[in-house]
């Protein structure tokens, strides 16, 4: 008994200061890729190197629209190997409330050799989303008045949040990092956030994907069993954008193809700091303790 207490006391508190302090991430870590849009001369090698189609382009009428979708990015860095205009940073806090804000695009004049000549200034045309079945109606009519819920959830969840984790088809990589949030290093409990066993106790569903055909119904049922107000956080490249699996005979693709999503946390899998950032962002607390 004294051995156990002694070991605990001699080890001391090992919890990070995040988010008051910046995340401790190795300089070699691969976080979000950064594209130098003005210097980018040819989107083809990077698009060919990208295993998930996060980097893509469309040629039309002598112009090329190049598009980068962070939601689908698995942070492998193969694009950076293929194209000097792309650089991997070690920035991991990428969570966004809005799916469209994860997509960046630019328009170029197309040259004869297939490389693009120069950036067309101004905002790129709204990137067209791949056709996706509309999210089916869910049981609650409240869904339509999202803003109201957001206000209410901010009021309610600010200091107490219960999370139900749902694996709707992931490879278990995201689960490893989510489980890490309970470790003494990240200690999500210090924010008043707990992982709970039942969706009835939950305020937030943390869903990893891609949603498989076999898990679709279970995910819907879990969502319906969660009392209002509630929010959904999609985790990982597969959960946010379908990832390397995409949509096929066995998967339905990203989480928002099945239930509405409030916050997207890209990554493959997201770093625990990124997960904390995403969860805190969902409850409008990502600045917690930050000066």
């Amino acid at each position: 008994m004294f051995g156990i207490l002694g070991k605990s006391l001699s080890t001391g508190i090992v919890t990070t200061k995040y988010p008051a302090a910046p995340p401790k991430v190795s300089i070699r870590a691969r976080g979000r890729p950064e594209i130098d849009w003005t210097q980018w001369k040819d989107a083809r090698p990077a698009a060919a190197a990208c295993p998930t189609g996060a980097i893509s382009f469309q040629d039309a009428g002598g112009h090329r629209t190049a598009r980068f979708d962070l939601a689908q990015c698995i942070f492998c860095g193969l694009c950076a190997d293929a194209d000097p205009a792309i650089r991997m940073t070690n920035r991991v806090e990428c969570a966004a409330r809005d799916r469209a804000s994860l997509i960046s695009a630019a328009r170029y004049k197309l040259g004869d050799d297939g490389a693009h000549r120069q950036l067309v200034p101004g905002p790129a045309p709204v990137a067209t989303e791949p056709a996706r079945p509309p999210a089916p109606a869910v049981s609650s009519p409240l869904e339509s008045i999202g803003r109201q819920i957001q206000q209410r959830s901010r009021l309610i969840f600010g200091r107490s949040l219960h999370i139900r984790e749902v694996d709707a088809g992931s490879c278990n990589g995201c689960e490893i990092e989510i489980a890490g949030l309970n470790s003494p290093v990240y200690d999500i409990e210090r924010f008043g956030i707990h992982f709970v066993a039942s969706p009835r106790h939950a305020d937030m569903l943390l869903v990893t994907g891609p949603v498989t055909r076999n898990m679709e119904l279970a995910l819907r049922k879990t969502y319906d069993a969660t009392p209002e107000p509630r929010c959904v956080v999609a985790v990982g490249a597969c959960g946010c954008g379908g990832g390397i699996f995409g949509v096929n005979y066995a998967t339905r693709g990203p989480v928002d193809a099945v239930i509405p999503v409030d916050v997207y946390v890209p990554g493959c899998p997201p770093n625990p700091h990124a997960l904390l950032h995403g969860i805190l962002r969902a409850i409008h607390r990502e600045q917690w303790g930050r000066i």
Binding site: S26, R28, A29, C76, G77, L78, G173, E177, C268, N271
Partner: peptide, 11 residues
Amino acid sequence: EELTGSRLLRG
């Protein structure tokens, strides 16, 4: 992460 750039040795 320090050795491979990914905590789960991906990439």
